[in-house]
Simulated assay, not measured.
Amino acid sequence: MIEIHCTKKLLARLPVDEQGNLPVSKTHGALPTVPGQLSPLSGWHANLLTIQRRNCVMFVHDTTRFPLFIASLKKPDFANLEYWFEDALMNTLMKCGATALQLKKVGHALQRLKMDSQTDRSVQGSLNQMGQDAGFMLEDCKVDEILGYGLAANLAQRPCMIKSGKDALWPERDFLALLESLPEQGAAPNPRTVQPTLPENVTSMAGFRYRKDRYH
């Protein structure tokens, strides 16, 4: 599983069960789960932001401070937050120049999300700062006309200071380094994110998604 430490404001919007699990999407199915085992991608904080009267969710990875930004969520989208997390993670990594092998490792490591309210002050501080920065970055554009991948990738390229460390974290560099450290083979890959190996001169469009109401 992948643990997501949510603010009370966000958790109140999520239709989770007593174990902190979101309902299985009838459209997208469920991510795999390894009972009693955390995914190497586990450990994120998440907060609900209101930007231009739209509901947005910001995620920050605990150890690297790598951010994800999901814009303009409607009520049904909160039940499908597992899908939107996966979508934001894969597409933001592509914006950051992740290699095909790194994306494949992510596909192997993706598991179901488990939501809780256990937050860390240091990570919470980074989450709040990135949320404020996102609001400033969106002042000159409409939040309901963006996907958020580029915004998150931009935030990932900035240094992030933490209270417990002398050196700054560089979210993009540090998260990609985390992916490099993962084994090439892991749990059964998620078929929604891992595509068959193709010849170098062939490009698959399976990983690209077009939605009429969201772009950029």
Rank of each mutant, 00 (worst) to 15 (best):
T50I: 05
N91T: 00
L48V: 10
K163Y: 14
Q129S: 09
P189H: 06
S39L: 03
D17A: 11
R121P: 01
Q157F: 00
Q37D: 07
K105Y: 08
I146V: 15
G107Q: 05
Y210Q: 05
H45D: 04
L151H: 02
V57M: 10
P40C: 04
R158G: 10
L68P: 11
G165A: 15
G20C: 13
T50E: 05
K26C: 05
P159F: 13
N91P: 00
L103S: 01
A156G: 00
D17I: 10
L48I: 13
S42Q: 07
K9L: 05
S117H: 09
R209P: 02
R121D: 04
K95P: 00
N154T: 04
N128D: 06
G29I: 08
N201C: 10
Y149Q: 06
L93S: 04
K142F: 09
K8Q: 09
L198E: 07
P23E: 11
G97E: 08
R13P: 05
L38W: 07
Q19L: 13
G135Q: 04
P199I: 12
L89A: 03
T33A: 09
N201H: 15
N128R: 04
R209D: 15
K104H: 07
L138M: 12
M58T: 02
T193C: 10
M90I: 14
L11I: 11
P23M: 09
E3V: 15
E200V: 14
N154E: 14
R209M: 13
T63P: 02
S72G: 14
G107L: 07
L178M: 12
G207V: 01
V143L: 04
N47A: 14
N154D: 12
L169T: 04
T27E: 07
H61K: 08
L41R: 12
R211M: 14
A109T: 03
R121A: 03
L38A: 15
D140T: 01
K212N: 09
E86S: 09
G131H: 05
E145F: 01
N154Q: 08
L14K: 05
M205D: 13
S181T: 15
T119S: 07
P76S: 12
P159R: 11
N128G: 04
N154K: 03
M94N: 03
F175Q: 07
A188N: 11
